[in-house]
């Protein structure tokens, strides 16, 4: 063990960690949008939409992320869209996270008392208003802990996008350890950085949860 190796590599690793963080954040944000849309589609009462949403969720939760990633990476050029690896990576992360997020929302929607939407209907609210004013805001509140958890999972999963050559934390660790032949030190450092980010996120999640419970 030589700690000087870690000290030398630290600036690069931290820079790469920032990339990991923003990619994961972007993935979770886009995943939110997809997740809400899929969730609304599945609850809309339209059977076609419901089935399409169900297949989407089942596929992206059932197929390993690495395969999804390669699928998107090789598929987009095939249909004429030549994308940089970064775009393919973010698409894969968002699509996968969208599937999980839609299930989180589905669970939270069940926690909103049914009488509320019935009352709104009786008062003449349109279904769009019921969704944006009554169901989704509450569903969001109920799902905050699960969403923070989802961000942590995505941050860990983002290590897989190193495979298509995106220079995030894992890829950068690989590159550095391939040049200085010190994989033990470098991967340990990378592990500690991942752990630190995730612990901070978990702490943040607990704080937000407590705050939401207060009022």
């Amino acid at each position: 063990m030589k700690f000087s190796v870690i000290v030398d590599a630290l600036p690069h690793l931290l820079g790469a960690a920032v990339t990991t963080i923003w990619i994961s954040l972007l993935g979770v944000l886009l995943g939110q949008v997809i997740g809400v849309l899929v969730c609304v589609a599945r609850q809309s009462g339209n059977r076609g939409l419901d089935m399409a949403g169900g297949v989407y969720v089942s596929f992206f939760r059932g197929v390993p992320l690495l395969i999804q990633l390669l699928l998107i990476y090789y598929m987009l050029p095939l249909i004429g869209i030549d994308v940089p690896p970064l775009v393919a990576a973010i698409s894969a992360l968002s699509l996968a996270s969208g599937a999980y997020v839609s299930e989180i929302y589905r669970g939270s929607l069940n926690a909103v008392p049914h009488g509320q939407s019935e009352a709104a209907l009786a008062l003449g609210f349109s279904s769009a208003t019921i969704w944006t004013r009554i169901l989704l805001p509450q569903a969001f509140r109920f799902s905050v802990p699960a969403l923070v958890n989802e961000l942590i999972l995505l941050l860990k999963a983002s290590s897989l996008i190193s495979v298509v050559g995106v220079a995030e934390l894992t890829r950068t660790s690989q590159t550095i350890s391939a040049s200085n032949f010190r994989p033990l030190e470098i991967y340990l450092a990378a592990g500690v950085i991942y752990l630190a980010i995730n612990s901070a996120l978990a702490l943040f999640g607990t704080l937000v949860e407590r705050r939401l419970q207060q009022g």
Partner: peptide, 23 residues
């Protein structure tokens, strides 16, 4: 438990497979 659950599986594999020989 916290360390294993807080780090990516891929990093754990790299540590074991590439980092292992160093120890």
């Amino acid at each position: 438990i916290e360390v294993i659950r807080g780090t990516p599986f891929l990093i754990q594999l790299f540590l074991l497979y590439s980092g292992g020989p160093a120890i």
